[in-house]
């Protein structure tokens, strides 16, 4: 018989002291005193096993960690891109805004001059309806261009609300008074008593106006716009519920993204500005919508704890 090795094998053993150990047994066939014999070398590998397990655990965890970090890096990168985009839009808006303001000022001045000149120089001559219409169109278009510039500026600048304690219902009524709804749209209001809270009146009025106009535009073939306010435990809520076209699932995520629009006219700044206004108050806008049924936009504003009854 040859002096050959047998493959070592692992075994769980119990020592004399009763301690469980992991061991590796390496058997060897030998000749001992002229006889065939087996020499078994037992090595305690408990510590090595533990170390191996620790390494295995660690490497598995490491993979998770890497995945998690990768996700985080991606998220930050996306955020950075968004922020960079916002800054780029801001710079562009400021530049374009200023460059457009001058020609707009000239058009406004010239239109004013022509209007006055026409009524002054030719008081006895009837100015054609068409001429007056054309002048009005110039005026309206300038005002619209002006609004675009203002929207871009509102979107790009960091805004700080000028807070004043008010009854939000008053602002809702004020905003709705500026809404010209077509006859096919029924406007219903349900304004419940609200605690006075500190808000920027102009930002709120513009947000409510925007939400109301969006709702009306979503109901081209008529419907009902219900505007309601209520106080919940910690919030003041202002809802605009329409029975219009609703928002598709795929568009739902994008509606607050600047420059996203489904309308033929407009830049798609409205909702992103509303969101910015409300978030600058620490509030939020909730959207519920069902395609073909309608949408509900709810502005949610915190009622500060120290608000308890004090009026100013």
């Amino acid at each position: 018989m040859k002096n050959e090795d047998v493959a070592p094998y692992e075994y769980r053993l119990i020592t004399k002291e009763g301690k469980k150990i992991e061991a590796i047994i390496t058997p060897k066939l030998i000749r001992y005193k002229g006889e065939r014999a087996i020499l078994g070398i037992i090595t305690d590998i408990t510590e090595r096993k533990k170390a191996e397990q620790a390494i295995r655990n660690y490497s598995e965890h490491l993979e998770e960690l890497v995945e998690e970090r990768t996700r985080e890096v991606k998220r930050v990168q996306e955020q950075l891109l968004k922020a960079e985009r916002a800054v780029a839009i801001g710079e562009l808006a400021t530049m374009v805004g200023h460059d457009l303001r001058n020609p707009l000022q000239s058009i406004k001045n010239a239109t004013y001059y022509l209007n006055k000149e026409l009524s002054r120089s030719y008081p006895s001559v009837v100015i054609s309806q068409k001429t007056m219409e054309m002048l009005q169109i110039i005026n309206d278009s300038v005002n619209y261009a002006d609004k675009i510039i203002r929207d871009l500026k509102d979107f790009s600048l960091t805004i700080k609300p000028i807070l004043k304690k008010v009854d939000v219902n008053v602002i809702v009524k004020d905003a709705l008074s500026q809404v010209e709804a077509p006859e096919s749209v029924k406007l219903v209001t349900e304004l419940r008593h609200l605690p006075r809270i500190k808000v920027d009146q102009d930002m709120m009025r513009r947000t409510f106006l925007n939400l109301a106009l969006n709702a009306i535009q979503a109901m081209e073939s008529g419907g009902t716009l219900k505007v309601s306010t209520r106080e919940t435990e910690r919030f003041v809520e202002v809802s605009f519920k329409d029975t219009g076209t609703g928002i598709s699932k795929e568009n739902m995520e994008k509606i607050f993204t600047p420059f996203f629009t489904t309308k033929a006219k407009g830049m798609g700044m409205g909702l992103s500005i509303c969101k910015k206004f409300i978030e600058s108050h620490g509030g939020s806008i909730r959207v519920e919508s069902k395609e073909g049924k309608g949408s509900t936009f709810t502005v949610i504003l915190h009622i500060p704890q120290e608000n308890g009854g004090e009026n100013r």
Binding site: N102, S106, N109, A110
Partner: peptide, 15 residues
């Protein structure tokens, strides 16, 4: 510095 604004503003003020 904008010539058009100068001209239009001037005209409407003179008016």
């Amino acid at each position: 510095d904008d010539a058009n604004i100068r001209e239009t503003l001037s005209s409407l003020l003179q008016q």
